[in-house]
């Protein structure tokens, strides 16, 4: 598994969940594998290096401004970082733009050849189990339909407190 620890460290900062909670989903390996499937290894190496160089606060947490400026706003790393966040929360791999893929993606998956249908699929759910483990469900105080049943009658209960932590503008 390519640089799994680095993947978890970066993911923890990007999702704002502790590494243990991410490991607890049981699907981190699948996400990391998916990432390696679509992003070139040297680009991933650069991404992890960039992340390791980010300024940190006294508590060891990455400074949010540095994260925004140097990683999320970066033309090369930003799309990867956003896709990592989306994987954890929504269990979906979102297709990268063709431009980005041609420059930083894995050719076998991402090079559109003229006259040949591109093998790049559209957005897809990473796996059955990943869908169930999406972090968006507990965050909403909900559950994936048809899986992780919360029990008879819960539909009449108020959502959990965690929903209050989302501030919609």
């Amino acid at each position: 598994m390519y640089r799994l620890d680095d993947f978890y460290d970066l993911s923890a900062t990007l999702t704002d969940y502790p590494v243990t909670r991410l490991i607890g989903t049981g699907v981190g390996n699948e996400y990391n594998q998916t990432l390696s499937q679509w992003v070139r290894q040297d680009v991933l190496d650069e991404l992890y290096h960039c992340f390791s160089q980010l300024e940190r606060n006294n508590d060891g947490q990455v400074c949010p401004q540095a994260l925004r400026h140097q990683l999320l706003s970066n033309e090369k790393y930003g799309p990867i970082a956003r896709n990592i966040i989306k994987m954890w929360y929504l269990s979906i791999w979102y297709k990268m733009t063709d431009n980005w893929s041609m420059t930083y993606g894995i050719p076998a998956y991402s090079s559109p050849v003229i006259g040949v249908e591109s093998p790049t699929p559209e957005d897809y759910i990473i796996s059955n189990n990943a869908y169930i483990q999406g972090l968006v469900w507990p965050l909403m105080g909900s559950h994936p339909m048809g899986a992780k049943q919360p029990g008879y009658g819960t539909w009449s209960d108020a959502p959990l407190n965690s929903i209050a932590s989302i501030h919609l503008q």
Binding site: R21, G24, T25, G26, K148, Q149, P150, G151, Y152, D157
Partner: peptide, 14 residues
């Protein structure tokens, strides 16, 4: 019973 389901979830995460 609802709490039992929650318990299962947190145990599996651990």
């Amino acid at each position: 019973v609802c709490t039992m389901f929650s318990l299962k979830e947190v145990i599996q995460i651990l």
